Simulated assay, not measured.
Amino acid sequence: MSSSITIRLKSGRSYCSGVLISPDLDAAADARTDLVLSCAHFLRERTGPISASGAFFPARVLGAVRIPRTDLAVLRLDTPSPPKDLLRVSTSPAPWLAPTVTEGFGGNLRRPAQRLGRVVARSPIAMGRNLRTFVTSAAILYNNPKAIKGDSGGPVIVNGEIVAVQSMVTDPLGVNTGIATVAQVAPHRRAIAAAVAALQQAY
């Protein structure tokens, strides 16, 4: 597990997190990549061009594809990363009670923080308060430290694989409960692969 594959995406005053992935979605040692997995809701909220930082190379986003019916997106950068140890995009759902590590730049950190957690539930559908962020095949985590704004799009890692990306926090009346909703990748892996292929063909 390496925080050097977790990146910060920024557009105007908005930012989120993301994770570098290989074109075939499998693990790859000492590999360069220009592909990022992140959250779709950031693309809806952005106010201009998107830049990437935080993994020891600067880049700009050439294009992005949102995965239908969930809070996942794939982005392509204009500059490949330096060699990285990339993690596999999992083909299995997050196991019940599995320990998790979520990485993200929440709180305007210069380096990603790790939020330790555990899978406490799974849900076929989850929706944000604004009724615009929508996740199918969600997992529910309890994190300590708590996931916060800006961690969205960061990888959720179980047993050395990316099982989800951070999507939403549960904060009734502004109180962060430590409960987070994450968008699982396994049910959408075929769509993620199709998004990669579309980006590679377009740019």
Score class of each variant (00 low, 15 high):
A194I: 00
G174P: 09
D71Y: 01
T70G: 09
R88T: 10
G154H: 07
I140Q: 09
R132S: 13
R8V: 04
V89S: 08
N130L: 06
D24G: 02
I162D: 01
D26A: 10
R122V: 15
P187Q: 14
L9F: 05
D78S: 10
V120E: 07
A139K: 09
V135Y: 06
A164P: 04
I21G: 07
A59D: 07
R189A: 02
L116K: 15
P80H: 08
D30E: 13
F42H: 00
R132M: 11
R110W: 05
D34E: 13
T79P: 00
R132F: 04
R66W: 01
L141R: 04
V165F: 00
A197E: 12
R189S: 03
K149M: 03
T102S: 14
R118L: 13
D151P: 04
A180Q: 09
V61E: 10
S167A: 11
V36S: 00
T102F: 02
A28N: 08
A29K: 13
A202I: 08
G106N: 05
A138M: 09
P93I: 15
A64P: 00
G128S: 13
L35A: 06
I192M: 05
R122W: 15
V156N: 04
G48C: 07
L35E: 02
S90E: 01
D26S: 09
Q201P: 00
P83T: 13
L25S: 06
T33Y: 06
L87E: 05
V89W: 04
A180M: 10
A183T: 14
G154F: 06
R110P: 02
V182N: 00
R32A: 15
W96H: 15
S11N: 01
I67V: 14
D78A: 11
P187W: 10
R8E: 03
L37I: 02
I162W: 04
I179M: 13
I192T: 01
L35Q: 04
D30H: 13
L131M: 12
P68H: 12
N143H: 14
Q200N: 14
R111I: 11
T33E: 08
R8T: 04
S81C: 11
L86Q: 02
R46Y: 03
R66L: 12
D71N: 00
P83Y: 14
L9N: 07
F134C: 04
I148G: 01
S92Y: 08
A31Y: 11
V196K: 03
N143M: 09
Q200D: 12
A29H: 09
R129K: 05
P49D: 12
F134H: 11
Q184M: 15
L131K: 13
R69Q: 15
K10C: 04
V175H: 11
P23T: 07
K84I: 01
A55E: 06
D26L: 09
P155F: 03
V119W: 07
